[in-house]
Design a protein around this nucleic acid. Structure first.
Length: 297
DNA sequence: TCACGTCAAGCAGAT
DNA sequence: ATCTGCTTGACGTGA
């Protein structure tokens, strides 16, 4: 079991997701920003290793406008050395990496334009992981997408579109249950058709499920991950006390977390803490997990 | 230096 | 018809 947090470190004072406005686009601005972002990414990973955090989600904003038509710069070759440098650090310390394209990436949209842009953005995410020379355990997590008034048809369209993606992208994708539309059961159905592993999100499951317990759901998801996919990835968070249903907690709830570990102890996985205070909660989790046999492995 | 309107992109439910 | 939450910040203009 590895413990991780997404994208941002609030302790070390740099950001790996610096960007700028489309109107301000220039090649020099892009180069300057990506240099900063890659440099900061390495700093974050160094911080993580120092504190026994070996799972990390790389921000989608690492290369701003990477899949936008305005960007015709060959950033992969230009930054090849920097990517390899970060990648070798990841290898050396056996860090697990994920990425999570944001809500605009919807491959099952009936709108061809949205599909085209989504495909381009997935290619970009794949290019980042490939430039880092990461193996097939480094994954891109995606939701199934929209329902458009017909869930079975939308799931079938997802499978069709998946089959039309480049093989390099296909081998990186995993699908995640969401909080409103596609449950674990839906994702498992899509997985049966496509072979895509299912990433279990605990919080989404708590607000959108088909009656399975967490233990049942996580076991079913785990079965969709093969050796080459690596350990199953799990997104973990809990309800913010007193806030609107669905809001992520500000900080790790030690009791909730310990109970979750106990309830899932028969399965090993890597856990991504989607909690607002980022690395602070990861540090708490590392300390709480030290008595867990999976963490010691 | 600071305040604050806005930022590439989508969906679905609420108002 | 328009706004809001997803992830929440931070860019950058105007004063």
């Amino acid at each position: 079991m590895k413990i991780g947090y997404p994208c941002i470190n609030r302790t070390i004072g740099c950001t790996a997701d610096r960007t700028f406005r489309l109107k301000s686009y220039s090649e020099s601005r892009l180069i300057e920003t990506v240099e900063n972002n890659l440099d900061c990414l390495l700093q974050i990973l160094e911080f993580n290793v120092k504190y026994n955090i070996f799972f990390f989600r790389i921000t989608s904003d690492l290369v701003p406008f990477a899949s936008h038509p305005i960007n015709r710069f060959d950033w992969i070759n230009h930054f090849q050395n920097l990517f390899e440098n970060v990648g070798s650090f990841i290898h050396k310390h056996n860090i697990r990496i994920s990425m999570h394209p944001d809500q605009f990436i919807v491959i099952n949209s009936p709108d061809e334009g949205i599909w085209e842009r989504s495909r381009a953005e997935l290619v970009y995410h794949t290019q980042v992981l490939d430039a880092l020379e990461l193996d097939s355990t480094a994954r891109i997590q995606l939701h199934v997408g929209g329902v458009y008034g017909n869930k079975p048809a939308s799931m079938e369209r997802f499978a069709l579109r998946f089959s039309q993606l480049p093989a390099s992208v296909q081998s990186r994708l995993v699908i995640e249950n969401d909080d409103r539309l596609f449950t674990v059961a839906d994702c498992l159905n899509v997985s049966t058709i496509t072979g895509i592993p299912v990433l279990f999100d605990t919080f989404h499951h708590s607000v959108n499920n088909s009656g399975e317990t967490v233990e049942q759901a996580i076991a079913l998801c785990a079965e969709t991950w093969t050796m080459k996919d690596g350990l199953p990835m799990v997104d973990y968070s809990s309800q913010a006390p007193g806030e609107r249903k669905g809001n992520h907690a500000e900080s790790l709830d030690p009791d909730h977390y310990s109970t979750f570990l106990k309830n899932t102890q028969s399965i090993d996985f890597d856990i991504m803490l989607e909690i607002k205070d980022k690395e602070a909660s990861a540090l708490k989790a590392v300390s709480l997990s030290k008595s867990d046999i999976r963490f010691l492995n």
